[in-house]
Design a protein around this nucleic acid. Structure first.
Lengths: 267, 267
DNA sequence: GAACGCTGTACCACAGAGTGGAACAAAATG
DNA sequence: CATTTTGTTCCACTCTGTGGTACAGCGTTC
């Protein structure tokens, strides 16, 4: 089942993964250094990827940058991700209502993956990036996804996790995390302040599919200074209403065995 | 310079390209048929791509669909496409003002490539798809890009083009196209009605970079029935104002040798 | 329920695709 | 002008990827 890796493919992916939002232009040699591949391999692979449109080459610098070819693939993936489609209009409304950045995360490979975001128009705002991967133990969205996982999966991930203190508020004690996850399950939403990025706060709530499984987390995030107790209360109410609508649109009918949020003041 | 193709890479790309918005789930054998590759090759490559996250596999059907891996690459490409970033807020305003679908196209490989779109919220609307490729000779956006190309490039593309009548309104006579392109250059914008999709009309205008080259086309599109002469006049005014702002934000200072739109009533 | 068609995957001998060190020209740097 | 660093090309070698075949599993169909 765990098939043999295709070397060429792995290497091509490795090369593309070198590029980031900040490091968006890199030469062959630099990529070779980062990947540990030989310069000739990188040169040939990257030239081929240029021909395919996966990379572009600056004619003067001769350095490479990301190309447009992946756009269509990403679009196809997104288009057929039905959570995203259902959530989109609700996210839009939530943005108008809260004036903060709204993001949608799904669980992918023991991490959370941002599949949609709409950014606040305010000058001071949280920028989210579609396609970005973040840890599960830091930030409200991550904690929500972790909290609603089946017990054994949750425990497995916590045990595997190498806790790093991104900020002074990051939860690095597994026992404290477990305690907080229990509380999140009880109240139906999560709150965080500066766990992943200092000064960034957020509230998050889980989205259920027709089977009653949690498949995504919706978050409202912004600078911590704007998250006063009164505002937090309003955001919690807004996000609970939003995830309720999305979950129902996905065919979620009630609460099977996830004993969630019915004893919460949702409206 | 035209390096030898990397077979494995080409094949992997070929496989991913089989998937579309409508055909988003396909089995190994079907992909093999479409690509002409052997089933074993497809199986192995696709299994590897699954491991990489480029594809996902439905555990019950065993069929494959697009995976999330390409999201990040697309995001990196988009993030560093400065036209798009500059255009985004203007597109947003244009959507609010016109209530029609707004799209941004760049020239890529003798075709136009949609790199951004915002959709009208109206029930009857044009749906655009980021990453989609369309021909240059049909539709307002394509004609604009073609019109502002250097003469020899324009001629080269027209000669290479295999004109297909997508609708009864599609321009398939090269001479008529040339005439229309000249007019577009003179008036600074393009209009089309049902050239690419019947019942779909649009207006488009060019975006210039700091060198005075046209790097993109912005379009307003919607059902032809809504495009009355009065509305068209309003949309033309709106889009000219929009491309003016975007071009200026990109460092476009005036009109170098592209002798464009200064003798038009822009405001 | 047997026979069929279909699926995705594992196997393995073989060919050739991809490798990587060295050599190259062209810029950039000192 | 020497030196370093860039991306690319070359070519003999090797190991990667190939594809025909076989297999197991699932639905239909007779």
């Amino acid at each position: 089942m765990q098939a043999e890796k295709i070397q060429t493919l792995e290497r091509a992916i490795q090369i593309l993964d070198c590029y980031t939002i900040d490091q968006f232009e890199m030469g062959v040699r630099e990529v070779a250094r980062l990947t540990g591949l030989s310069a000739s391999v990188c040169s040939r692979l990257m030239a081929a990827m240029k021909d395919a449109g996966l990379l572009t080459q600056n004619p003067t610098t001769r350095a490479y940058a990301m190309g447009p070819r992946a756009l269509r693939w990403a679009e196809i993936y997104s288009a057929n991700l039905d959570i995203r489609n259902v959530a989109l209009p609700v996210i839009n409304e939530l943005l108008l209502e809260t004036q903060e950045t709204i993001s949608l995360y799904i669980l992918d490979n023991d991490e959370r993956l941002c599949v949609e975001r709409m950014e606040s128009a305010q000058n001071v705002r949280i920028v989210a990036r579609i396609g970005r991967r973040l840890p599960l133990y830091a930030g409200s969205g991550g904690k929500v996804l972790l909290a609603y996982l089946p017990q054994h999966r949750q425990e497995e991930i916590i045990r595997k996790t190498d806790f790093k203190p991104f900020t002074s508020s990051t939860i690095i004690d597994p026992e404290q995390l477990r305690k907080e996850l229990r509380q999140i399950r009880m109240q139906g939403y999560a709150f965080s302040n500066g766990e992943w990025v200092a000064d960034a706060a957020g509230v998050a709530a889980p989205i259920f599919d027709h089977k009653g499984d949690v498949i995504a987390a919706l978050t409202i995030s912004g600078p911590g200074t704007r998250f006063t107790p009164e505002i937090i209360r309003r955001h919690v109410a807004a996000i609970l209403q939003a995830v309720e609508r999305i979950s129902r649109d996905l065919g979620y009918i009630g609460n099977a065995y996830n004993q969630p949020q019915q004893n919460n003041p949702r409206y």
